[in-house]
Nucleic acid binder design. Structure first.
Lengths: 344, 344
DNA sequence: TTGTATGCGTTATCAT
DNA sequence: ATGATAACGCATACAA
């Protein structure tokens, strides 16, 4: 039973008061150098570690960023690889700023009474700010959280509130660029497999597709727009439908890499070769994309950058910087690999 | 500036003392029913949320499980998809037990003095327990943490200490089963691409391979054992080397799906078809495995189950249950898909 | 330069 | 059944 060293014990050992110890440790100037040194030395020897709880109680700062992370219906959370990479960037950024991440898991905070509530969970742990990943912006509880005065950053979702900032990729521009790539290769029959359209990225990528198709002077065909849900299986089904068309497309823009990979498989199953018979471009550039067969051409999202931007925004707002643009859009990049080629 | 409702404000509103409020909320029996109801109602109206910091200060329980998660050298953390799925299972399990997860990000906890230290970070936040994912068991700081009396669960790594429990898959048995599957299909020239051998799973899977090869009466050939690091690129390179052999294998057991996928690609690049010309089996069953081309035959690890078992262990030990087996091994399952077939 | 005292929001131990 | 009151570990305003 090793007792935790408290500031009181450290004070006794140093022969000074707890107040002095606190000031010495926190870098106040009005402490005699030799006193400080003695205290610091003893702190090291006794392996003193301040209690975050006690400190946050008095300073009203927890140095903790909360994370609400879920993905849609039917998909247990933490599933989409995209979110994890974003989380990695967030972790790195807030870590360098001296913050840790609290991944909310329990739905019954505190005394366990009352309904499920994001705001309550955030308040309970006195987080200094929160990152919102994969939440439903229309959820009343999300809106309630957004109305509070706690710094918030929403990733890939629309949200507004007194202290919320939104971070997302240039989904519309990226989608247009993807279609442009296909068009430049010579494709004229270009279809798309959409993501969930009630999500901002899903809607934006479809919008980008539309804009690019029209800009290219191609006819916009309803049957070239098939709905998916960002996951692989939906990409496969959508591609099957597309290939069954009387006049099937020669190229497909899938709104996610996962769906693109599903589409490649669907093509293989009917004996079509990618990219010789069918070009497929994805969106995300997940880690596996360079390694699938064929290597996937895709629009790369700067996932670490997204998380980093979120962390940066949070840190700035926690520090009191309130005049910040409520929206930060990160550029995407065309990565040409082996799944696209000129039409046969 | 909405003021946070404190227990004091709630007491004043209810016309009772804070002590009574606390007892009412915490379900003590010695509170008059009508008093309790009034308090509960007001708590709801004022949207009262207890402060975790204050509570943990007095109860010595934070209801927080810390998570140290990193992956090896050169690979920025949070990269391997396997770990994320484990994290998902952990999150779910501890959440249902009323705990939240603290993802350690900052390397300078507290006053920022002193060296990097896992133990210090854990103590600083008074976590009730910790999950260790992807750490180096030989790291002196890890050992120091393990010696402490705080409940620990190590995932996929060897570690011992007064309160540490280890959770991992049956890597050795699974590897043997994978090789057995290949052998049963008729393969006799079976090679392996290993993971990092300084990791417990990497070493165990190689051991399982060896055991199965010998059990099958096949000759153990050094040139059929190529070293990888679990990631895709290493699988690709290893497979290239294998295929360049004078007598190349007809089947490969890759110690991870990522490497198996890299291997498939290497085969494709030299014009070999999988599984017709070369069978490949992986290990993990990551989310993409069913969707790659061809769908990957693999040994499925119960990733959610791993995380869940870790969470369960942590919760039990935090509750004081100390007589628990220090090791929990979860079974793996052969998933036959399209990347293995009888030799030509 | 240092010590003392107060308070942060709770729970827990006494009384009553 | 309820109310004071003392912790919990720390930071800080005020004295000295």
């Amino acid at each position: 039973m090793e007792e935790r060293t408290t500031i009181k014990a450290l004070a006794k050992a140093s022969g000074v008061s707890v107040g002095t110890v606190s000031r010495a440790l926190n870098g106040y100037t009005d402490v005699r150098p030799e006193t400080r040194e003695r205290i610091m030395r003893l702190a090291r020897e006794l392996d003193y570690t301040p209690a975050a709880a006690a400190r946050s109680l008095v300073t009203q700062r927890s140095h903790i960023i909360g994370v609400f992370m879920e993905t849609g219906e039917g998909h247990p959370d933490l599933q989409h690889p995209f979110f994890h990479e974003v989380l990695g960037g967030l972790k790195q950024q807030v870590g360098s700023g001296g913050f840790d991440l609290l991944l909310f898991a329990s739905e019954r905070p505190g005394n366990g009474y009352g309904p499920h509530s994001y705001l309550k969970r955030a308040r309970h742990h006195s987080v200094d700010g929160c990152a919102l990943i994969g939440l439903e912006p229309d959820d009343p509880e999300v809106r309630r959280l957004a109305r509070a005065d706690i710094p918030l950053v929403a990733i890939d979702m629309d949200l507004d509130g007194p202290a919320v900032e939104v971070v997302m990729s240039d989904n519309e521009g990226g989608a247009a660029q993807a279609v442009g790539h296909l068009h430049a290769l010579g494709h004229r029959r270009i279809a798309t497999i959409t993501g969930m359209l009630d999500s901002r990225p899903g809607a934006d990528r479809l919008r980008g597709y539309r804009a690019a198709v029209q800009a290219a002077g191609l006819a916009y065909r309803d049957d070239y727009v098939v709905y998916g849900d960002f996951y692989a299986e939906s990409g496969r089904e959508a591609c099957e439908r597309l290939l069954a068309l009387a006049e099937p497309p020669t190229a497909i823009f899938a709104a996610s890499d996962l769906m693109a990979i599903g589409a490649i498989r669907a093509a293989a199953e009917v004996g079509l070769r990618v990219p010789e018979d069918l070009s497929i471009i994805g969106f995300d550039d997940i880690q596996l994309s360079p390694h699938v067969n064929p290597p996937l051409t895709t629009m790369r999202q700067d996932k670490l950058g997204l998380g980093g931007a979120a962390g940066e925004a949070l840190i700035a707002r926690v520090a009191g910087d309130a005049d910040r643009s409520p929206l930060r859009t990160l550029p995407v990049e065309l990565i040409v690999r082996g799944s696209t080629a000129p039409p046969a």
